[in-house]
Simulated assay, not measured.
Amino acid sequence: MRFQEDDFYIKKTLEGNLNAYGQLIQKHEKYAFTLAMRILKNREEAEEAAQDAFMKAFHSLKTFEGNAKFTTWLYKIVYNEALGRLRKSKHHTVQLEEVEELAKDGVDYLDGLKSLQLAERKEFIQQGLDAMKSSEAAALTLFYLEEQSIKEIEDIMSLTNSHVKILLHRGRKNLLDSLRTITKSELIHLL
């Protein structure tokens, strides 16, 4: 589905069109969930955090001034909601995010093999992110998966420029270390 610009949906929502807000949720729900998942590392908690964040955003939409991108404003709400839940829960259970269904109707053998390789890579990266500190995983997710700028990450996470850069640097290093450990362990199990 092709979406309109966020401003279109915001304007329609403020005019009372709830379907427009539904479209805005559909447009951003995957990224909101992914960010919450990086922090909470629990699928159910992440889903609830993302849902609650969308509710808070809806009730505060009239205060959105447009000084920053809507996604920056929304992800800050998601980030704060997930952090609040993490503080309340005080437990750090790690559950792997389910790998997306990659098989498509009518794919040939090579496409199926590529899909399996992609799914395996995604699983390794997910395991690596789950093993990291929440703040590093969130920073990497925002920067690489959601393509937020360092300035936007500063706003979302309420951190300084240098702190964001440190999180990204440490996060990349720790993710690489985690991936080395995970893949080494997988190779040992194959032998």
Rank of each mutant, 00 (worst) to 15 (best):
F3N: 00
E5F: 04
D6K: 06
F8P: 04
L14Q: 10
E15V: 01
G16S: 01
Y21G: 03
Y21W: 02
Q23F: 06
I25A: 01
I25F: 00
H28C: 00
H28M: 00
F33C: 00
M37I: 03
I39S: 05
K41F: 06
N42C: 06
N42Y: 09
E44R: 10
E44L: 09
E44N: 08
E47R: 09
M55Y: 12
F58D: 05
H59P: 02
S60R: 14
K62H: 14
E65R: 15
A68I: 09
A68R: 11
T71L: 03
W73H: 01
Y75G: 06
K76I: 03
I77W: 10
V78E: 01
A82V: 04
G84I: 03
G84S: 05
R85P: 03
R85L: 10
K88G: 05
S89F: 09
K90Y: 05
K90E: 09
H91V: 15
H91D: 12
H92D: 08
H92I: 11
T93Y: 13
V94I: 15
V94R: 15
Q95I: 13
L96I: 11
E98Y: 09
A103Y: 12
D105F: 15
V107T: 07
D108H: 08
Y109D: 12
L110H: 06
D111E: 15
R121L: 08
E123W: 06
F124C: 08
I125W: 04
L129F: 08
D130S: 12
D130I: 04
K133Q: 13
E136V: 04
A137S: 12
L142H: 10
L145M: 09
L145R: 11
Q148F: 14
I150T: 11
K151Y: 13
K151R: 14
K151L: 11
E152C: 08
I156S: 08
T160S: 15
N161D: 11
V164K: 09
I166R: 15
H169S: 13
G171R: 05
G171T: 07
R172G: 06
N174H: 15
L176A: 10
D177P: 02
R180V: 10
T183P: 04
E186F: 11
E186G: 03
I188P: 02
I188C: 03
